[in-house]
């Protein structure tokens, strides 16, 4: 029933920073319950697209439709209220605050909801079950966590807003391969719980192995799209994005 419904449609979106255009007419869509990945090299516009969907950037053209509602140019706080949660590149945690306070801020957008305190407790339980290590470190300041733990906290913080669509920007950034696979194991669990995810990732191989579908972005345009297995089998993708993925992991 809900499986086939469209959750996000990005239609011919152009966007960028100030007068510097990055995206030129990008169209993608995400269905309910899907994990969709955006791959491509540095500067292709992957993060720009996520930030535009999350309202951090305003599109200069085209439209963003979320659950049937046009949200083009929405403010970031309205986007969170609408059910979009961004896990920004580089985590962007609140370093001087404790793990618990970071999670509390994750639920900031819902603070006025009537059943907030009971929902908050529920969500906290879910998050602690998904990330047991965070439960052990509630009072520790976020700055003292390891890179992997910080990434987990960033994802957990986003989940605290009860998002319907999780926007994940480069979750593998700066992490060791073993930690990366831990993070993606968690994404698989989220996926099996029916969380819809739009994932930006430089590590195309890992991303495609954990996604349903993918788009290849190149210099601000969609160059290729297909199911994850199609893209994994595509010669161009293999040569350009999979052949060199080991090298690109260390870059930002």
């Amino acid at each position: 029933m809900t499986e086939a419904r469209e959750m996000l449609r990005v239609e011919k979106v152009s966007s960028g920073y100030g007068h510097v255009g990055v995206l030129e007419g990008v169209s993608i869509h995400v269905m309910h319950g899907e994990v969709v990945t955006l791959i491509g090299s540095n500067g292709a516009g992957k993060s720009t697209l996520l930030k535009t969907v999350a309202g951090v950037l305003s599109p200069t053209g085209g439209s963003v439709v979320f659950d049937g509602r046009d949200i083009s140019g929405i403010t970031p706080e309205k986007a969170v209220e609408a059910g979009l949660a961004l896990v920004p590149e580089g985590r962007r945690l609140f370093g001087s605050m404790s793990v618990g306070e970071n999670l509390e801020l994750g639920a900031y957008a819902r603070r006025r909801s009537r059943s907030f305190s009971s929902e908050f407790a529920e969500d906290l339980e879910i998050v602690h079950e998904l990330f047991p290590v965070l439960g052990e470190r509630v009072d520790q300041s976020a700055a003292t966590l390891s890179g992997g733990e910080q990434q987990m906290l960033a994802i957990a913080r986003a989940l605290m807003s009860r998002p319907r669509l999780l926007l994940l920007d480069e979750p593998s950034l700066g992490l060791a391969p073993k930690v990366i696979s831990e993070i993606f194991a968690i994404l698989d669990r989220l996926r099996s719980r029916g969380v819809t995810i739009l994932l930006v990732e430089q590590d195309a191989s890992v991303a495609l192995r954990h996604a349903d579908r993918g788009y290849v972005l190149r210099t601000g345009r969609v160059e290729l799209e297909g199911t994850a297995s199609e893209l994994l089998a595509n010669d161009d993708v293999r040569m350009i994005y999979l052949g060199s993925w080991k090298k690109s992991v260390s870059g930002t």
Binding site: A54, G55, V56, T75, P76, E77, A79, V80, E81, A85, L86, V87, P88, R91, R92, L93, F94, G95, S96, M97, E101, E104, L105, G106, Y108, A109, R157, A158, S161
Partner: peptide
């Protein structure tokens, strides 16, 4: 003041949490 402290910690992070930074 937690919205203020969040903004102090990271602007993008606080936007991602739904803090009205403006």
């Amino acid at each position: 003041g937690r919205a203020m402290r969040a903004l102090h910690g990271s602007e993008l992070g606080s936007q991602a949490c739904g803090v009205d930074t403006v």
